[in-house]
Amino acid sequence: MTNRIDQEDVAHIAQLARLSLSDEELIEYQSTLSRILEVIEVMNSEDLSSYPPMDHPLETVNLLRDDVVHQGLDREVVLAMAPSSEDEYFRVPRILGAP
């Protein structure tokens, strides 16, 4: 597997990650990500098919909580953190498009 990452890929990933990159950054990230990916490629030199993927170090299941109400946060506290709010709401610039 050789995934040479090109600048178009980098731009696409940046959009996915909600980052904007300058032209210099685009070049820098392209070369650095490519180098890191080369290091990562060593994994693929090994036949790992007999090793099942490990999602998580814990093997426990069912860590559940009782359906009991707990005290939350006061609205004043919550909205005081907000960069922008209006009345009892968080406020954001207009939204273009659905998720």
Binding site: Y29, T32, M43, P53
Partner: peptide, 28 residues
Amino acid sequence: KRRIMLGTYALSAGYYDAFYVTAQRVRT
């Protein structure tokens, strides 16, 4: 940013198995 980019790439469509799943196998 570099790590967000790398992680986004590793999870993105078409690369998930080659990167993320392989890495999980390495954990095993």
